[in-house]
């Protein structure tokens, strides 16, 4: 396959960026999107040009390192996939592909397609934990959990912290990310003792980090590579009202 790649290049958070167009020949349909970009970089280095900076690590859709807009969609056009699992089978020979970093104020560009997502850690740090010290846990089966709730908690807990929900949102809201963590703990008896403090602290930190408000468009759910559901945001709102 032959592709035309329009890629955003930017030196750092403070410099002006611009699109650079690369022609790339010899792309195989069974490559992943990340492998295609690695192949581009190998070609660029061979020609003495600067490679494109982007993040990737596990190549299994679970670490959350990768992420970029591909033709305007976070993680690309296929539902439920991270960039690293996106196969080039989904693109046509001769196609032009536009590739950009996450665009959100709380995610400053570090270089090219790499952004700083530390704001998500800060939110988790505000209250995304259950305060049990090592050694203090009771025997595991003394805490029975309704299977349905346990399964729902699991469905929420699969968030990989990639930031696609923020990137997809016109308000750069992190509500889906926060709701996933809040839901996981709200659905489990272990999470109840600190429930009120947690939801207040995490929402306050989300605001402090500069994420926007939720206006229920559902773009986050549509773009989440782990298909975390919008009803988690409804649960987050309920938890939040109950916390005052």
């Amino acid at each position: 396959m032959k592709l035309k790649l329009k890629i955003w290049k930017q030196g750092d958070a403070h410099s002006r960026g611009s699109f650079v167009t690369y022609d790339l020949d010899g792309v195989a349909p069974e490559m992943s999107f990340i492998e295609m970009l690695t192949y581009l970089n190998e070609t660029l280095i061979g020609k003495g040009e600067e490679p494109v900076t982007f993040e990737h690590d596990c190549h299994e859709g679970i670490c959350g390192s990768c992420g970029m807009y591909i033709n305007g969609y976070p993680h690309g056009p296929v539902k439920g996939l991270t960039t690293c699992l996106l196969s080039m089978r989904n693109f046509k020979d001769g196609e032009t592909i536009v590739i950009e970093p996450w665009r959100a104020k709380p995610f400053p560009v570090i270089k090219d397609l790499m952004v700083d997502r530390n704001a998500l850690d800060k939110i988790q740090q505000a209250g995304g934990f259950i305060s049990v010290t090592t050694g203090a846990a009771p025997e595991a089966n003394t805490i029975p959990v309704n299977k349905k709730n346990s399964d729902l908690a699991f469905d929420a807990s699969v968030c990989i912290g990639c930031g696609a929900c923020v990137a997809a949102c016109k308000n750069a809201s992190a509500m889906l990310f926060v709701s996933a963590k809040i839901s996981q703990y709200a659905l489990l008896p272990q999470g109840r003792p600190e429930g009120k403090e947690r939801v207040r602290a995490m929402i306050a930190e989300m605001d402090r980090q500069g994420f926007g408000s939720c206006s229920n468009t559902g773009a986050c759910e549509a773009q989440c590579p782990k298909q975390i559901k919008l009803f988690n945001i409804a649960r987050l709102n309920r938890e939040y009202y109950k916390a005052f």
Binding site: I130, A137, E139, A140, P144, S150, A153, Q190
Partner: peptide, 22 residues
């Protein structure tokens, strides 16, 4: 066994039986 107790206490959603046990 302590590892399972600890992870359960900090909210790791391990698979469960209908009766609520792991």
């Amino acid at each position: 066994n302590q590892i399972i107790d600890h992870f359960t206490a900090i909210g790791v959603p391990f698979a469960r039986e209908y009766g609520g046990t792991l």
